[in-house]
Write a protein that binds this DNA or RNA. Structure first.
Lengths: 247, 247
DNA sequence: CCTACTTTGTGCGTACGTTCACAAAAGCCT
DNA sequence: AGGCTTTTGTGAACGTACGCACAAAGTAGG
């Protein structure tokens, strides 16, 4: 069924798999690099290599967007950059507010990668009067009291939480109340938000722990023992360790 | 689990699914909070709620570690904290080196969450002589030249890359050459490393793009059109059209 | 026009991950 | 002790994701 175009038989209209969505930014980055080098077209094989994925996966991912390649040739770089950008919503402006101007918030405010793709740091907020008023990255830090007003007036659509963990939930609540439906959370807490609000989490500690797990597998052999708390000692019960491989 | 003979699906000695490993730190954090509040035991239902996951998933995850619960009661908090910590390898010390002391590296060096779970910032490194020598978080920034020596002498096992993207691959190569097999990469680049080396990536820009995608779905209706590059018509025919993306 | 070659787009088998639902185990109460 | 309640641990159904392999669709050349 080689339709000229029209109806995407893909997923009902626009059902792009989550896993695919998560990879699109990766492809986009690789394509942007090619674009800057003036490369006109790229094959799925080449692009996949640049993005560090399997070429079949890449082709399938792109097929969800539409049929934008040319058999025997590959993909037109500029055209694909545009299509992916559009699908991700990067052809529009996304004002971002950063809440919590500590070390991390400070770093993010200065982070160039933010502005690079349609994201614009519209506001910096903090609860500490010792911080508000300071200028960071050419922008004045406002007080939390102004949150609702800023969100409304600047049409902020994405909130980035870089507060200490204890404050994160309250900040999230206020963001949601102010109408924000997308949150990027750097605080090490599970945020609970109403249906319809998207939360993504970035957690350094978790990433390190996952690395440690694999590192332990590789270098060390067995989990190292330490002070072992007793089993919820039932009458006469012995705490047994999990069946660990016999070394 | 009456049959103690069944060939574990998670056989392979210790075949804990990746998805489970990624959640263990989450459970650990929730358990630590309970522990601090002096809660002695917790049910899968409660713990799952605290960690923001489904309770069946939680039970299955924990079952990979062993049978540490008590039917009708729940899990002993302290005991479970220990078992998860041990499985993740957090009962041992993991010296970490941060390479690239810009805004982000600086923030990470001061980030308390690092030290909270067996991770110890053992060294800060930078290629810029204007930065080396500075003291950050009570630690002198060393020069990249000393990387190999530091890794060796301090038994650094995990490298955190917070350099600009162009430098990341070279830093990774040197880390690998120095013997490091776990890397946490904050630079927006795909690192290529030999088999056996673990790389995890944290990418702000990608997280924001994923949020933007969903935000577009929710608020906006369809992807917004912009300057549309022409379809590729002929092979040689360059269609260098409007730059869609800013650099 | 016809043949040879390249590369996309996708059907299909497999593996992995999630969730339900329930038997088995443990505590508690009478 | 026996029955009732609670909660774990897991079998099984379901759904998503991955990657091979190949037909279809395009280019290139004679």
């Amino acid at each position: 069924m080689a339709t000229g175009r029209t109806e995407r038989p893909a997923q009902r209209g626009r059902g792009i798999p989550e896993a695919t969505v998560a990879r699109l930014p990766l492809y986009l980055r690789a394509l942007s690099a090619l674009s800057e080098r003036g490369v006109p077209t790229v094959s799925s094989e080449e692009l996949a290599a640049a993005a560090g994925v399997n070429s079949a996966k890449l082709r399938k991912d792109l097929s969800y967007l539409g049929s934008y390649g040319t058999r025997g040739v590959g993909y037109d770089v500029e055209y694909l950059v545009y299509q992916i950008s559009r699908e991700l919503g990067l052809t529009q402006d996304w004002p971002v507010a950063i809440i919590g101007i500590g070390n991390l918030g400070h770093a993010l405010a200065n982070y160039g990668g933010f502005a690079s793709r349609g994201f614009r740091v519209a506001a910096l907020l903090d609860a500490d009067r010792a911080v508000t008023g300071q200028r960071i990255a050419g922008m004045a830090v406002r007080h939390m009291d102004d949150l609702e007003q800023i969100v409304r007036e600047d049409h902020v659509s994405i909130g980035v939480i870089t507060t200490p963990a204890p404050a994160a939930q309250e900040v999230a609540d206020r963001l949601v109340a102010a109408g924000i439906t997308s949150i990027l959370n750097f605080a090490p807490t599970v945020l609970s938000v109403p249906e319809g609000v998207d939360v993504r989490k970035v957690d350094l500690s978790i990433e390190l722990q996952i690395l440690a797990f694999h590192e332990q597998r590789k270098s060390g052999l067995d989990p190292v023992a330490g002070p072992v708390p007793a089993r919820p000692s039932k009458p006469g019960e012995r705490g047994d360790l999990p069946e660990v491989m016999p070394a």
